[in-house]
């Protein structure tokens, strides 16, 4: 069972580690969006935890990213790949 997902598919309560920034369905503004995500702390290796979501189509989402809270739309979150923490992931770290 794969526990590598796009952050846009995550549900409230999911925790994981960012494994890749970029890709997704980025258009021509690829590198711009990638850089903006990086500048807000969405960088490979960062711990993320989805804590809240909006009322319309569960969007936007609020995340703990390491020790800060950031809001973004699922559309942008599609450009972040995360590895969900398995049941034993925390123990293994």
């Amino acid at each position: 069972m794969s526990n590598v997902i796009q952050l846009s598919e995550a549900r409230v309560g999911d925790r994981g580690v960012i494994t890749h920034v970029g890709g997704g369905r980025m258009g021509e503004h690829d590198s711009e969006l990638e850089r903006r995500l990086l500048e807000l702390g969405f960088v490979e290796g960062a711990q993320v935890h989805l804590i809240h979501q909006g009322i319309v189509r569960r969007d936007p989402i609020a995340l703990r990213v390491d020790d800060m809270t950031v809001a973004l739309r699922r559309r942008e979150a599609a450009n972040l790949t995360i590895q969900l923490n398995g049941p034993f992931a925390e123990a293994a770290e």
Partner: peptide, 11 residues
Amino acid sequence: QVEPFMMELPA
């Protein structure tokens, strides 16, 4: 054209 929405939620 959709502009991203991303912002820090400060303490």
